[in-house]
């Protein structure tokens, strides 16, 4: 098959379509920079979607649990080995993503006789200020979307990942409008939760290109708040310890949701 370029292209296109369908139901994840750190928020059904990768790096993933697990392990092994042989300061999300994960994902995706990774991941690395926070979304084919800031790009202090491109775009539009990097934890939590609602609504009403109005969002929240558990994690900026990752306990997310 691979001797015939056209059939290879066709096989890749089919594969892309298949993976997109598999990922389409993935519950969105929003991560936002705020004054004291980076906050990841999602609502889940059963399994954990937010993970600690290294001292200053966290990850959220949607897709097949087995594939997410393999990529998560690879990321932790790479970061830990680097941190051990050199130092924690030498572990960089940019290198991890561009030079380690992306080539692996691309190779798996394009080897049409092998299984691709059914996963889409959002990584974040905490900096000294929100302007130095880094967000990277890595696709199943190894493509990487960053939060910009290079070559005069407008910089965004957030990152999102969702089941479909339309949902992802709407969440980004919403956050570009609503999010303020100087926000408090409470404000950041509210914005990120709302971004989840925007993304989730876009998944259920496919074809929407418009941001929902406040009423529709409130109604949607009312319907889904009870059935879906909030999962939230922090990378803390001012923390005195090297390890910045912390999962928010249930009582914390409950009190943040209440206000």
């Amino acid at each position: 098959m691979t001797e015939e370029p056209y059939r290879w292209v066709e096989a890749i296109a089919n594969r892309r379509e298949y993976i997109e369908t598999q990922l389409a139901s993935g519950s969105p994840i929003a991560a936002v920079s705020f004054r004291d750190g980076i906050l990841f928020v999602t609502r889940g059904r059963a399994r954990q979607k937010l993970f600690e990768i290294y001292d200053r790096i966290a990850m959220g993933g949607i897709g097949h649990p087995g594939d997410i697990e393999r990529l998560r392990m690879a990321a932790i092994e790479l970061a830990s080995t680097e941190g051990f042989t050199r130092s924690a300061a030498d572990v960089s999300l940019r290198r991890l993503a561009f030079y380690s994960l992306s080539p692996v994902l691309k190779a798996a995706f394009e080897q049409v006789y092998g299984a691709p990774y059914l996963a889409r991941m959002l990584f974040a690395e905490i900096g000294d200020t929100p302007a130095n926070d880094l967000f990277l979304r890595i696709e199943f084919d190894g493509a990487i979307a960053t939060n910009g800031g290079l070559l005069g790009d407008a910089r965004r202090e957030f990152g999102v990942v969702s089941g479909t491109a339309a949902s992802t775009e709407l969440m980004e539009t919403f956050l570009a409008r609503e999010h303020n990097p100087a926000a408090t934890l409470q404000q950041a939590f509210t914005t990120a939760s709302n971004a989840w609602i925007v993304g989730s609504m876009a998944l259920s009403e496919s074809g929407t290109r418009e941001l929902p109005d406040a009423e529709a969002m409130a109604a949607y929240r009312g319907e889904h708040a009870a059935s879906n558990q909030v999962e939230a994690a922090l990378l803390e900026r001012g923390s005195q310890t090297a390890i910045r990752y912390r999962t928010l306990a249930e009582h914390e997310t409950r009190s943040l949701s209440a206000s």
Binding site: L78, Y99, P103
Partner: peptide, 11 residues
């Protein structure tokens, strides 16, 4: 996937 790939972690 690639036995020659060091992942940049070897010192």
């Amino acid at each position: 996937l690639d036995s020659a790939f060091s992942g940049g972690v070897d010192d």
